[in-house]
Amino acid sequence: MRPIVRVSETAFSAEDELRAFMRGRDDSGACASFVGLVRGGEVSALELQHYPGFTEAEIERIASEIAQRHSINGLLAIHRAGRMTPGETIVLVAALSAHRAAAFKAVEELMDWLKTDAPFWKREWRDGEAAWIEPTAEDYKRRARHDTETA
């Protein structure tokens, strides 16, 4: 099973992508999905840079590992790049499996990895000031927990 991975410089519809992903999948009894939105509040805009070719290959490598570990029938990851404003869809991850537990796990693990380790470089605008963001200690701790669980 080869995961479907895409990095999009333009807005995408999570609903349309999910519908297409699930169509005709009678091999699976479960589809779990996660949609990430750009959160408003202090942040007025954010920009994600990616390394075309490299970023997609890294996501596919990790997604394949996760899919294999949980006997996933289909795994989808679509991530935005470029400049975004609050309310926009930034990521969609979905997994198909025979039963729900595996699909939930796969989505959570891939999301955790995407949030901390995926090859993106993020810049946020607060009060008109732009700053580059690096992973938080909490992000790393969360990831270490999964590594222990799956070791």
Partner: peptide, 10 residues
């Protein structure tokens, strides 16, 4: 050749 600072994740 690409020079990459710590990756922030998405």
């Amino acid at each position: 050749v690409a020079f990459m600072p710590p990756m922030s994740g998405g």
